[in-house]
Write a protein that binds this DNA or RNA. Structure first.
Lengths: 113, 113
DNA sequence: CAGAATCCGAGCTGATACTG
DNA sequence: CAGTATCAGCTCGGATTCTG
C-alpha cells in the first residue's frame, strides 16, 4: 500500500476557484503587484483576489511584501516553501493535459474540456 | 515557463470532502462493495458516498459493477484510467507529509495537522 | 443492500459601493 | 493603489426518511 492519506493537504491548500490561476501567474512571472494580478486575471474581483491571496499567504505558499508609501504598493511572490509545490503542480499539470486528451477520446473533439 | 495551466483538471476531479478517502481505500483494497466503503469510512453518509462515487465514475476514475440480484450487490474499483492518477496522488502525498512537518516547525507540535 | 428524495444550514463566490 | 464592507445567490455537505 502506497498512499498514507496525507494527500488531501494539497487539496486544502490549493482549493479555491482562482488559486490555480494565481499560482500559475506567480510561478511564471515571479513577483507581481496586486494590480498586475488583476490585469492578468480579468474576471476575478478584488475581493476574491484578496481572499485567495490571504489564504495562500496563510498557508505560507506566497509571500506578501508591503511598501509603506502613497499610493500603496504590495508585491506578491511564491515563497521558498511554496516552491516545494512545484513537483506536485507539474505532476498535476501532466495529468491534466493527458486528461484533456482522454476526454476528447471519450466524448469526441467538441467536448474537449 | 513550466506550467501550462491544465492542472486544475485534477482539482476538479479530486474535489469533494471524501473523494481522497474513497480513492485511498479503493487503491488500497482493490474492489470494494458499497457497504464495505461505508464501513471503512464511518463518518460518511450514504448520500455523500453515492454522490462522490457517481462523480468519480462520471470522470472515469472508478468503475462501477452492478450485480442484478436480490439483495443488490455493487462493486467499485479504480478504473484503468484512474490508475493514471497514481503518480499525481503520490506527489501530493509526499508534499502532504512534508507539509505536516512544515506546520509543526512553524507552529509547534500541538498544531500538528 | 444500495440507493433516492427532501429539507436545511454553512460556506464559497460575486456585484457593488466605499476608504486610507 | 490596494484593499474593506455589505448584500445576495448558489453549491456543497449532512440529517432524515423512504424504496425496490
Amino acid at each position: 500500500m502506497v498512499l498514507n492519506c496525507k494527500y488531501e493537504a494539497v487539496l486544502e491548500v490549493l482549493f479555491g476557484k482562482w488559486k490555480t490561476v494565481i499560482l500559475f501567474n506567480l510561478f511564471s512571472n515571479g513577483t507581481m503587484r496586486f494590480s498586475e494580478l488583476q490585469k492578468a486575471i480579468p474576471d476575478i474581483t478584488k475581493k476574491m483576489l484578496t481572499h485567495h491571496l490571504r489564504e495562500l499567504e496563510y498557508h505560507d505558499i506566497v509571500h506578501r511584501e508591503v511598501y509603506q508609501q502613497v499610493p500603496p504598493k504590495v508585491e506578491y511572490s511564491i515563497s521558498a516553501y511554496g516552491r516545494s509545490l512545484l513537483p506536485v503542480l507539474l505532476a498535476m499539470n501532466e495529468w491534466g493535459m493527458a486528461h484533456g486528451k482522454h476526454l476528447t477520446e471519450l466524448y469526441g473533439e467538441e467536448s474537449g474540456q
